[in-house]
Design a protein around this nucleic acid. Structure first.
Lengths: 339, 339
DNA sequence: GTATTAGCATAGTACGTATGACTGACCATC
DNA sequence: GATGGTCAGTCATACGTACTATGCTAATAC
């Protein structure tokens, strides 16, 4: 069992720096100096120790709201993601948090839940706390944000804004190239409906690689799907009717839906159908057979986004666009057709 | 009388209620009344419209730090989870957020990343923002939290604290009962290492059900595993060496690890081995064969936690313990032994 | 004609912290 | 014994908002 400290007595009201000062027999300024670490050469070591001791005894914690008000900064940044339920985005959050932590920042998560009604969402975003900036994943900047706000776009771009993205073009090209090399001539695309740059890049790569292989991109089977395993499974049916020997899926979750549809129809992977995913999520290795997919370092994405934000704060007006690598990982869901 | 030099801060383009007031030709008080919705019968409709118009033109947004300071509340609650990368916890977050939103609250996420060094974590938790309370998932309360703080424990309990949990006893009992009924006499347990009440309850249920079936609980194969698919896969090896005909896993991720280990060894599910998971995560249906598991409504858990918090705030000192249902969902990973 | 009320708006203050300007004490130097 | 310098602290103020107490005008009551 977890051991919890017993519920105890204790004054109910909030302890402030004034209380600490009174107890230590010093002024509030002194307490503030001690806690902000700016007491060097201004407050004697003995006094500092005494202040800290009193603070501990009283259970003092600085009031963050007051600090934020006074400093004009909360040392916090908001991260907006479309769906925190998707582990990919959770890893982005974790990467951002790790980077933020070492810079003394906090990341406030805003989960939009794939809700397109941006009016509400932007409102919620701003309610999420007094933040110094925004890391926006695949969403257009909410209305209320002025051009002077610190914003970093993730997997999106806008003029004059910093942004990070993966090299989706290269990742998708490698995936289609892999299928072409295996000898596939009928290569389907199970695409996400989203109107985000990364998906356009993937489709562009598809068209280029197929054309280079002497195939007509427009003649290849293609279907779009909403998010979620069930949506993907439903969308996969018609696609499989077109009898592709291989399918590229816009992400691993979609691939999982395709696995389900294939199983229901007795289509064996990779014997009857090769499948490639995108993201390399944890469960890609658990699928049977393990999924060939494009690996992305989600945590790096989050960390990089934070660092771009930090660069803006620091005054280096780096309106940079960073592109992160995407690597094809070949597992057992791909094989020559009819093997 | 000293004139303060302008503090060298960010280009403080920040629009305040004073700016709005000046533009609208009214006092700051009036602006505040309009925005707090308390202007009914105190500010004429014409003035209200004018204030709102000016605010929109200037792009005014209330300063949340100032509001929190003044009100002594940020209308925010922190949710601590062990691993946001696990979709189960993400769903808890979503449930809490949904409930919070309709109450005008915000949920600040703190992801401890399964880090046992609680010193750092509690610090981070408190830095996460000025929050009115804490929803703690399977973690002991950080040191700095006084007993007067509003705290709700999730899947944990402590004297005098509100808490929510699933009926793990019933869920596990149903799962083992299901395996016994199928005719299994050698039923393994792939357990999580964690020292949380829910896992104790599951183990207690296991012992009870096995004993009632005339089996010696201590003679049945059992192994513990750390979190993560790979850890589970490694731990599953020795367990499979003991040749169980069925295994109950403490969660679906562990079950996924077991699937991998079974596949590597040529053990077929459910022919050679029946498997039961816990949580009913999305990918449980994607596994081949689809996983029999115990379904939990993670969102309900989050929402209930928030509601208990809200009850505390409202003064109803409901130190209640709520227990939520757990339902066995039978899929295709379980069958009579040797079938 | 005066008292009361209602309607509308404002002045002023406090929330808790950070920090530039200031003060005294002590000490060394010339 | 005046000058200057360092050390150790304090004072007073402002951040932006919410809200109490208050004022003012015009309308209504007696």
């Amino acid at each position: 069992m977890l051991a919890f400290p017993p519920i105890a007595r204790e004054p109910s009201n909030r302890v402030t720096s004034v209380d600490v000062a009174r107890r230590a027999g010093v002024s509030q300024s002194t307490v503030s100096l001690v806690f902000s670490g700016k007491g060097q050469g201004r407050v004697s070591v003995a006094t500092q120790d005494e202040v800290r001791r009193c603070a501990r005894e009283l259970g003092y914690r600085p009031n963050l709201a007051a600090q934020a008000l006074r400093l004009g900064s909360s040392r916090a940044v908001a991260l907006l993601v479309p769906d925190i339920t998707n582990p990919f985005f959770a890893r982005v959050l974790r990467g951002a948090q790790r980077a933020a932590q070492s810079a003394g920042y906090t990341v406030a998560l805003v989960d939009t839940g794939n809700d397109r009604r941006w009016e509400q969402q932007s409102f919620e975003a701003l309610r999420a706390g007094p933040v110094d900036g925004y890391l926006l994943f695949e969403v257009s900047p909410p209305e209320g944000l002025g051009p002077h706000e610190h914003i970093v776009l993730i997997e999106a771009k806008a003029p004059g804004r910093s942004s990070v993205r993966f090299d989706a073009e290269k990742g998708a090209a490698d995936a289609f190239g892999h299928l072409v090399e295996l000898g596939h001539r009928r290569i389907g695309h199970l695409a996400a409906v989203f109107d985000a740059p990364t998906f356009h890049l993937r489709n562009a790569a598809r068209r280029r690689v197929l054309a280079e292989a002497g195939l007509d991109p427009d003649a290849q089977p293609r279907a779009t799907t909403d998010i979620g395993i069930d949506a993907a499974r439903a969308a996969a049916g018609p696609l499989l009717d077109a009898r592709p020997t291989a399918v590229f899926c816009d992400d691993d979750i979609i691939a999982a839906g395709l696995y389900m549809a294939a199983r229901e129809r007795g289509v064996r992977i990779p014997r009857d159908l090769s499948v490639v995913g995108f993201d390399d999520m944890d469960f890609a290795r658990v699928l049977d057979p393990p999924l060939t997919t494009v690996a992305l370092d989600a945590e790096l994405l989050g960390a990089t986004a934070f660092e771009l934000f930090e660069g803006q704060i620091a005054g280096r007006r780096t309106r940079a666009t960073t592109v992160l690598p995407a690597e094809l990982v070949v597992r057992e869901s791909t094989a020559p057709p009819g093997s």
